[in-house]
């Protein structure tokens, strides 16, 4: 079996399986913990309005902006770049369409009812480059900022690595870098994405899911009290 076949076959299935198992395990493992009913008299009845914190916390209050804007902008740069490249690069879309076909017997259009748009390669290349640059800056920031350095652990560095890896290998494959046969580059790219899938549920990348739970529950908790969001 060639490396590419391995990446497309067993590695893909296993990583997807591990991803699904891990995400459910971790999410249910905390979401099914007990909750106590809050018996205090709410100040505001419509606690659900606190869900607005999910959107609200996407940018710091102006009072905090001074020290955090830099990190936020970098964060946005690599998240947007990453997500757009992930979901709107032509071969990716076709790849996902293939999942849909393989798993559910229908294409993306049938599955989501959407006409999945795609981005021109040039734009994706630019986005990936921005993402990579922002991620490098994020790493440097993590290393030079005393606060971030102190509170960082293996998870932070490894998650960084598995995030930048698919971007970097994707660019390398796109540019036929390094004189490697394209298929090996492609296989490495796939494998790096699979590494991301495998690591995802076990490290901090899980924030992509938990962030909504956290912001939502904090928002509702605070809204109930009329406290500042």
């Amino acid at each position: 079996m060639s490396l590419l076949d391995f990446a497309r076959g067993p590695a893909l299935q296993w990583s997807l399986g591990i991803f699904v198992v891990g995400v459910l395990w971790r999410l249910l493992g905390v979401l099914l913990l007990r909750t106590r009913k809050d018996l205090s008299e709410p100040r505001r009845d419509a606690a659900w309005k606190g869900l607005r914190l999910i959107a609200l916390r996407s940018w710091p209050r102006k009072e905090f902006l001074g020290g955090t804007a830099f990190g936020e902008v970098l964060g946005y740069a690599f998240h947007i770049g990453f997500l757009l490249a992930l979901f709107f690069y032509v071969p990716h879309v076709l790849f996902f369409a293939d999942i849909a076909r393989g798993l559910f017997g229908t294409d993306l259009h049938g599955l989501t009812g959407l006409n999945w748009p795609t981005l021109p390669n040039g734009v994706v290349t630019l986005l990936s480059a921005i993402s990579i640059a922002a991620l490098v800056a994020v790493l440097i920031h993590r290393i030079v900022s005393p606060v971030k350095r102190l509170i960082s652990n293996f998870d932070d560095y490894f998650s960084w690595l598995v995030t930048i890896a698919p971007l970097a290998t994707g660019m390398a494959a796109f540019a036929h870098l390094g004189g490697w046969p394209y298929e090996r580059l492609l296989a490495v790219h796939l494998l790096s994405a699979e590494l991301l899938l495998v690591w995802f549920p076990f490290g901090k990348l899980m924030h992509a899911f938990t962030i909504f739970v956290e912001r939502g529950s904090t928002g509702m908790l605070f809204e109930r009290k009329g406290a500042s969001l």
Partner: peptide, 20 residues
């Protein structure tokens, strides 16, 4: 520990912004 605190514990991404 309840659900909320556990979710909090799960997902600090070590961005360091709280320091500010």
């Amino acid at each position: 520990f309840g659900r909320t605190a556990a979710v909090y514990m799960e997902s600090c991404i070590h961005c360091g912004m709280c320091a500010e």
